[in-house]
Every structure is written in C-alpha cells, then in structure tokens.
Simulated scan of single mutants.
Amino acid sequence: MASNKEEVKLFGIVQSPFVTRVEIALKLKGIEYKYEEEKWGNFSDTLIKYNPVYKKVPVFVHNDKHLSESLVILEYIDETWKQNPILPSDPYKRALGRLWSNFIDDKCLNGVRKAVFTLDENEREKSIEEIEVVLQFLENELKDKFFGGEKIGLVDISAVFIAFWLPIIQEVKGITLFNFEKFPKLYNWSQDFNNHPIVKEKLPTRETLLAFYKVVLFQK
C-alpha cells in the first residue's frame, strides 16, 4: 500500500476517457492520490514539463517518477501496488490483456475519430463499417460478465470509452455504432461496467460530456 510519504498525483481533464481509466485503477487499488484538473486546450506548464513529447493528459506522478500514456500508467499501477490486480498472473493471459487493450486504442478509438470528424460521406461509412467489425471482435471475445471474468480487469478499464463515451458521441453525432440489437453481450457488459460502484464514482456526468461533444463535434 502507498504510505503517507508517497506522492501520487494525476493530471487530467474530466472529458478524457484515458484519465478516467487511471482513476478507476487507482480507486480499485485503494490508492489515495491528488487530482490536478487541467484546462482543455490550455494545459499547464507543469503538465508540459512532465510530458514534453505528447503534451497531453493523463500524466501520472509517483514520487519523483512521472509517466504518460494511460495503458503504460495502468501497468505501472498494477505492478507497483499488488492488491486487487487488474492483470492476471498467468503470462499468456497477461499478454492477451495487453493485446486487447491495444486493439481497443488502435482500432476502435482511431476508427471513431475518423467516423465523427471526416467530412467525406464515403469515408465515414467505411469507418463505421470498420468500427462494427472491431466491436464484433470484442463481442466474440467476451466470455464472462467482464473481460476480466467476474471482476473488472485491464481490458474492461481500457474499454471505458466504448461503455460510456461511445453512446454519448453517437447520440450527439446522430450515428449508430453500438447498441443492444447489434452487440447484445457487449451492451450488457457496458451496463454492468458503468454501474459498478467504483466505475460509477469515477465517470463524469453524462451532461458534462454531452455539452463538451456538442461543441467539439460541431465547431466550425
């Protein structure tokens, strides 16, 4: 467990699913931390100093060490604080967890960005089809209540964007990517995940994200 002498700090913004990933992991582990809210589009000098390459949230600070990139931070947290592991002990299962988490970022998040921001109608339709293929892979992979079995694990936390952000984005944009009819197992998972007490505590309000994406997705 973290002692009182340890500094654990997280720089983030409320709109970021990547920041929420880290908050969920810290809460699951029972780690106390200080949260530093950054301003969208105007990050602090401190954040830039800690993350000069990417200049984005989240930035995680543990004593004199600082890390960026949410999946890297999640693994560091899991290896530093052993209680309530989010990755299995079996090497093969751990590797699969990393594989699917990277798959979500590489294929799903990037696909959604293309689908909502591209101006070309044909490109948008192609992106939507690609996202549905990705979601079908995840639908097929889901064997239990959570990807981590009966308990939340790395893949579940990585997929918070799908569970909570994606339905809001598709509502604002007026497109349908993810619902019960298309992906019943994945949809039921999203409900269980969003309503998990620890996850629910760390999710931003739906109203906050709706207001944010109405500006971001329709700004001129």
Results as ranks from 00 to 15, higher is better:
146 F>G: 03
39 K>H: 05
14 V>M: 09
203 L>H: 10
68 S>K: 06
1 M>R: 08
41 G>K: 12
177 L>S: 02
166 L>E: 12
167 P>H: 06
9 K>H: 07
103 F>I: 02
1 M>N: 10
55 K>Q: 05
109 L>I: 14
130 E>V: 02
108 C>H: 12
30 G>N: 10
185 K>W: 02
73 I>A: 15
30 G>P: 05
33 Y>E: 15
217 L>T: 13
128 I>P: 09
83 Q>N: 10
189 W>C: 00
167 P>F: 10
181 E>R: 05
202 K>W: 09
9 K>W: 13
198 I>N: 14
23 E>W: 13
200 K>N: 14
28 L>Q: 08
33 Y>I: 02
82 K>W: 11
186 L>N: 04
23 E>T: 15
84 N>A: 15
148 G>R: 04
164 F>P: 09
175 I>G: 11
88 P>G: 11
56 K>C: 01
76 Y>W: 07
58 P>S: 06
177 L>W: 14
126 K>A: 06
204 P>C: 12
34 K>C: 06
137 F>C: 03
37 E>W: 13
94 R>A: 15
37 E>F: 07
45 D>N: 14
5 K>R: 03
194 N>D: 04
158 S>I: 07
21 R>G: 04
190 S>I: 11
144 D>W: 03
118 T>C: 05
183 F>K: 10
95 A>Y: 13
216 V>G: 07
21 R>A: 07
214 K>W: 00
53 V>P: 00
96 L>H: 01
87 L>W: 14
133 V>G: 04
34 K>E: 14
122 N>I: 08
92 Y>P: 00
37 E>L: 09
202 K>Y: 13
77 I>T: 02
39 K>Q: 12
122 N>G: 05
35 Y>D: 12
45 D>G: 05
145 K>V: 02
55 K>Y: 09
127 S>H: 06
